[in-house]
Amino acid sequence: MSAQEEVLFQQTLMLTELDNQQHKKIKIFLDQDYEALHIAFSYNPQEVPKELAIRVIEETLPQYDWEKNLQAMDFLPLQNLVTMSLAYEGEYLGCRHNKETQQEILISEKESSWGFIPQKVSSGQWEIQLNLHCVQSEVTVELVVKGVLSK
Rank of each mutant, 00 (worst) to 15 (best):
residue 94 G to F: 06
residue 94 G to E: 11
residue 95 C to N: 15
residue 95 C to L: 08
residue 96 R to Q: 08
residue 96 R to A: 03
residue 96 R to D: 07
residue 97 H to R: 02
residue 98 N to R: 03
residue 98 N to D: 10
residue 99 K to W: 15
residue 99 K to T: 12
residue 100 E to Q: 08
residue 101 T to R: 03
residue 101 T to C: 11
residue 102 Q to G: 09
residue 103 Q to F: 00
residue 105 I to P: 11
residue 106 L to Q: 09
residue 106 L to K: 09
residue 107 I to C: 06
residue 108 S to F: 12
residue 108 S to M: 08
residue 109 E to I: 11
residue 109 E to S: 11
residue 109 E to F: 15
residue 112 S to Y: 07
residue 112 S to P: 12
residue 112 S to Q: 14
residue 113 S to L: 01
residue 113 S to K: 13
residue 116 F to C: 03
residue 116 F to Y: 15
residue 116 F to T: 06
residue 117 I to F: 14
residue 117 I to H: 14
residue 117 I to P: 12
residue 118 P to N: 03
residue 119 Q to R: 13
residue 119 Q to H: 13
residue 119 Q to E: 07
residue 119 Q to S: 06
residue 120 K to M: 11
residue 120 K to E: 12
residue 121 V to G: 04
residue 121 V to Y: 10
residue 122 S to Q: 05
residue 122 S to P: 02
residue 122 S to T: 02
residue 123 S to W: 00
residue 123 S to V: 02
residue 124 G to P: 08
residue 124 G to R: 05
residue 125 Q to L: 07
residue 125 Q to S: 12
residue 125 Q to W: 00
residue 126 W to Q: 10
residue 126 W to K: 04
residue 127 E to K: 03
residue 128 I to Q: 03
residue 128 I to K: 01
residue 130 L to I: 02
residue 132 L to M: 05
residue 133 H to F: 12
residue 133 H to G: 02
residue 133 H to S: 05
residue 133 H to K: 14
residue 133 H to L: 10
residue 133 H to M: 11
residue 135 V to H: 05
residue 135 V to A: 00
residue 135 V to R: 01
residue 135 V to Y: 06
residue 135 V to F: 06
residue 137 S to D: 01
residue 137 S to V: 00
residue 137 S to R: 00
residue 138 E to Q: 14
residue 138 E to A: 15
residue 139 V to N: 09
residue 140 T to D: 09
residue 141 V to P: 07
residue 142 E to H: 12
residue 143 L to C: 04
residue 144 V to N: 10
residue 145 V to R: 14
residue 145 V to M: 10
residue 145 V to Y: 08
